[in-house]
Amino acid sequence: MASEITPEGVTVISVHGYLDDDTSPALSEALTAAASDNGCSRTVLDLSMVKFADSSALHTLLAGQETHETTGTVMILAGPLQAAVNRLFEVTSTGPVFRWADTVQQGMTC
């Protein structure tokens, strides 16, 4: 997982591999830090390289969304999503809870 702040003042968090019980705590910390950074108005979470995500990942994303809403920071999930990750949002009907972008670049401007 990597996190950077762009010159435009957008926090981009890139997640790779598996997003599960082992990796969700690191994502939670990154999302909390991004939401509390007063210099950034939005966080783009790049999920395009995530191969698998489970319910602990979904819980982390929902908590991150709530934290972002509380601080007035926009959180955008960016793809394209791999089939297994897309399926998590379909099965749980949680897709509409989040703002989405087809790419990180689109997420930075939408």
Score class of each variant (00 low, 15 high):
residue 98 F to L: 12
residue 68 H to V: 00
residue 76 I to W: 00
residue 105 Q to I: 09
residue 33 A to I: 05
residue 78 A to D: 00
residue 52 F to N: 06
residue 50 V to N: 05
residue 65 Q to T: 12
residue 87 R to S: 09
residue 29 E to L: 13
residue 21 D to T: 11
residue 69 E to K: 11
residue 2 A to S: 13
residue 20 D to L: 03
residue 36 S to K: 15
residue 40 C to R: 15
residue 34 A to I: 07
residue 34 A to F: 03
residue 85 V to N: 11
residue 30 A to F: 00
residue 110 C to D: 12
residue 107 G to P: 02
residue 79 G to A: 04
residue 26 A to W: 01
residue 77 L to A: 00
residue 80 P to D: 06
residue 63 A to D: 11
residue 95 G to L: 13
residue 92 T to I: 08
residue 26 A to K: 02
residue 64 G to H: 10
residue 71 T to C: 00
residue 101 A to F: 08
residue 51 K to N: 08
residue 65 Q to S: 10
residue 109 T to I: 14
residue 51 K to A: 13
residue 108 M to I: 05
residue 90 E to H: 11
residue 104 V to H: 02
residue 80 P to K: 03
residue 85 V to C: 13
residue 7 P to V: 03
residue 7 P to E: 13
residue 78 A to P: 00
residue 106 Q to C: 02
residue 56 S to D: 07
residue 66 E to D: 12
residue 44 V to E: 12
residue 5 I to M: 01
residue 17 G to P: 01
residue 107 G to C: 05
residue 39 G to H: 12
residue 100 W to I: 07
residue 74 V to M: 01
residue 68 H to E: 04
residue 96 P to A: 14
residue 97 V to N: 10
residue 2 A to K: 15
residue 103 T to M: 07
residue 32 T to V: 10
residue 33 A to K: 11
residue 81 L to P: 02
residue 70 T to P: 01
residue 89 F to K: 11
residue 20 D to T: 05
residue 6 T to P: 08
residue 56 S to Y: 04
residue 38 N to T: 14
residue 45 L to W: 11
residue 79 G to D: 05
residue 30 A to G: 05
residue 68 H to A: 14
residue 100 W to M: 10
residue 15 V to G: 05
residue 100 W to Q: 12
residue 49 M to N: 10
residue 37 D to C: 02
residue 32 T to M: 04
residue 18 Y to K: 08
residue 97 V to K: 10
residue 57 A to Y: 06
residue 96 P to I: 15
residue 80 P to L: 09
residue 38 N to S: 15
residue 90 E to G: 07
residue 25 P to L: 02
residue 106 Q to G: 04
residue 10 V to T: 13
residue 45 L to I: 03
residue 37 D to R: 13
residue 92 T to R: 10
residue 109 T to S: 15
residue 20 D to R: 01
residue 54 D to F: 04
residue 23 T to D: 02
residue 89 F to L: 10
residue 103 T to V: 13
residue 43 T to I: 15
residue 22 D to E: 07
residue 67 T to N: 08
residue 16 H to V: 06
residue 10 V to G: 01
residue 31 L to F: 02
residue 49 M to V: 00
residue 99 R to P: 06
residue 83 A to N: 11
residue 41 S to R: 15
residue 25 P to N: 00
residue 24 S to Y: 05
